[in-house]
Design a protein around this nucleic acid. Structure first.
Lengths: 236, 236
DNA sequence: CATGCATTTGTACTATCGTACAAAAGATCA
DNA sequence: TGATCTTTTGTACGATAGTACAAATGCATG
């Protein structure tokens, strides 16, 4: 049942602006920012290069808009899930729920935007790797609050672990999350086909399980001082 | 005490070829491949753009040469450390030594190349994120052997964990490792200055500790089936 | 010193980049 | 329908990209 499109979103093609955004997301997320030209994006979206300029003014403006429309929904969803997770009684279950509240929105959609959760997270991973300035600014001011809330929640579940360790481990979690989305085929290859790196459900379960265990690891200063160091030196 | 340079490595500037390689490594690792122009590299190395063409023919050739000179030494070092780690008796210590054998060469120099261990690893992280073709080919055929050897060694230390889980977790380890080198300042920021993300020694210890715990986590199918699922759904 | 080779320089060429802008086309509504 | 606004198209411009190539330069050896 198709509703009549309103004047705002109709044109030659139904919502060309949206098509450009999706095409740009996909291309940026797989090839990086500089490797993709405005003409590439336009072609993938079935649009004219001039349309990109019309809707987003500049290439940076296009990237900015991609972030804008994803950040708020994804953070909102994370907040909701985090709030629910904090209400879990059992401490072990609570930690797992907290980690899940952080991971799940990154894989699935942060809103009803066309299945773009994983796509946007992968985009963030790539922009972060490229040191993109536009992305860096938005990320720091948009996701740091969420990250702090997450770190605090984990810390409350594991009060005996120093906060510094929690920060490191949550950093590792994000890195693992990013990498899983960047090169899923590597998992398939290294497991000789026994695992599918592209399967979001598997990735989430594996990542949650591993991360929970990592968070629960004894802190460095607590680590049994009686046990001798392993045989391998870390000389420079 | 300066030795007299041989004819092969001298010129106007002592070893300009090397200077170009180092400058390119640094720029590629921080800005990505496409964001850096040959002219940028030449300027950073104090060379003429034509020199880059002379020594490496193309920009891809330059990237290829960067990989060539780092891959073999780093893998050699990893093999040595892994062999030593496998001789550790205590099972817990052995696992830690194995992980350390994988992590340490990525942070410190893979050889005597000017402090380039972390720089090269970061470069790999960025190229992986950008889906660089040249890098993808070399990596798959150069590092997969090492990765398999590492996975096998971990699996031998944890025979009750399915190999698939080990693959996932080693993938997470590499992602965490990459991300630590890509955005170390994020650790400093989120810890409010209490931790230094740029400190390789801290990063290594934290990463080893967390990864060992992650590897030791119970496998998914083994995970206590009696315990109820956490309250947070992972709906799509 | 003169010759030959290795390296560096300077310049130029073509392709493609991001972006601007005027004209065409479509949509909306009195 | 005709006027007006939004969107799309087509084209063009200046900047910069990778790279080729000839000339200049440095250095070792005869």
């Amino acid at each position: 049942m198709m509703r009549k499109p309103t004047s705002k979103e109709t044109s030659r093609k139904p919502n060309m602006r949206e098509a450009i955004l999706v095409a740009a997301e996909e291309l940026f997320a797989t090839n990086g920012f500089n490797a993709v030209s405005v003409r590439d994006i336009a072609q993938a979206a079935g649009a004219n290069p001039g349309s990109v300029t019309y809707h987003f003014k500049t290439k940076d403006g296009l990237l900015l808009e991609i972030y804008r429309r994803h950040c708020a929904p994804m953070n909102l969803r994370r907040s909701e899930l985090l709030a629910a997770a904090k209400r879990v009684r059992d401490l072990q279950d609570r930690l797992e729920a907290i980690v899940r509240a952080y991971v799940v929105p990154a894989f699935t959609s942060g809103s009803d935007l066309a299945g773009g959760g994983a796509r946007f997270t992968r985009l963030r991973a790539v922009m972060s790797a490229e040191g993109n300035e536009v992305a860096r600014k938005i990320i720091a001011q948009t996701f740091d609050d969420t990250s702090h809330a997450f770190i605090d929640a984990v810390h409350e579940s594991l009060p005996h672990i120093p906060r510094t360790d929690i920060v490191w481990r949550s950093h590792f979690l994000l890195g693992a999350l990013y990498y899983s989305l960047v090169t899923p085929e590597r998992v398939s290859r290294l497991s000789r086909g026994e695992a599918d790196g592209s399967d979001a459900a598997s990735a989430i379960e594996q990542l949650v399980q591993a991360s929970v265990a990592a968070f629960q690891a004894p802190s460095l200063d607590q680590a049994a001082p009686a046990r001798r160091r392993p045989a391998v030196a870390n000389k420079t």
